[in-house]
Design a protein around this nucleic acid. Sequence first.
DNA 1: TGATTATATTTCGATATCGGAATCTAGCGA
DNA 2: TCGCTAGATTCCGATATCGAAATATAATCA
Lengths: 113, 113
Amino acid sequence: MRRRFSDEALELVAARFKLLAEPMRLRILDALRGGEKSVSELVAETGASQANVSKHLNLLFRHRMVSRRKEGLNVYYRIADPTIFELCELVCSSIEAELEASRKALARRPARA
Amino acid sequence: MRRRFSDEALELVAARFKLLAEPMRLRILDALRGGEKSVSELVAETGASQANVSKHLNLLFRHRMVSRRKEGLNVYYRIADPTIFELCELVCSSIEAELEASRKALARRPARA
DNA sequence: TGATTATATTTCGATATCGGAATCTAGCGA
DNA sequence: TCGCTAGATTCCGATATCGAAATATAATCA
């Protein structure tokens, strides 16, 4: 039981991953890729309800993944942590590798059962 | 609602992140950093129950994050997807940045309230 | 074959979190 | 001041998943 990481450290890392473990949050983050957007724009772009988008944005904000700026009635959100996209790219290539492996495993199956 | 990613693609990416969003799985993966280990070794090293370790390993295996080798009564697991560690390093530095930002925010508070 | 050991699987209760619906709040304009 | 609009918050039911406990399976050995 010799441990490289403390429980708290692991909790922090896991919490970070958990933020990205939600399709809708990923969609929101992707929508922000091009620059800041208001909540309504994000609602329009994601197809989710306003309440939902707002909740997700708040969560991301509390973890400093996005930052925000108020202008009149609107609130504009933008990506605060650019490592997000590196993470997603790594995961994407990892998934491609996994799918490719699955494909090959299927192809390796005896031609005539 | 112009979308860069399909729903399925986002589900896949989110599922991948979800795998890493569990402290115990991170601990197991970290234990495998040095090379393959048997289930009992992992149980000893993580302090979790055998059933739990087994379940986590199975989940990781089904997603091809680890692979395994049977030898007699033992089953040896090893990391199959090395991008895991890159992911964790990115997240760690991102967390450090977040904590540093929080620290500075605190320090910026008026000296005498 | 029967016992033992390593691992896997199933069941279960507790907990977390998503999305929907309704409501609240703040800022702007008439 | 009133009403409208953008966004935030609260409450709720449904669903997922963790860990614990018990049990099952499989490989080895006596």
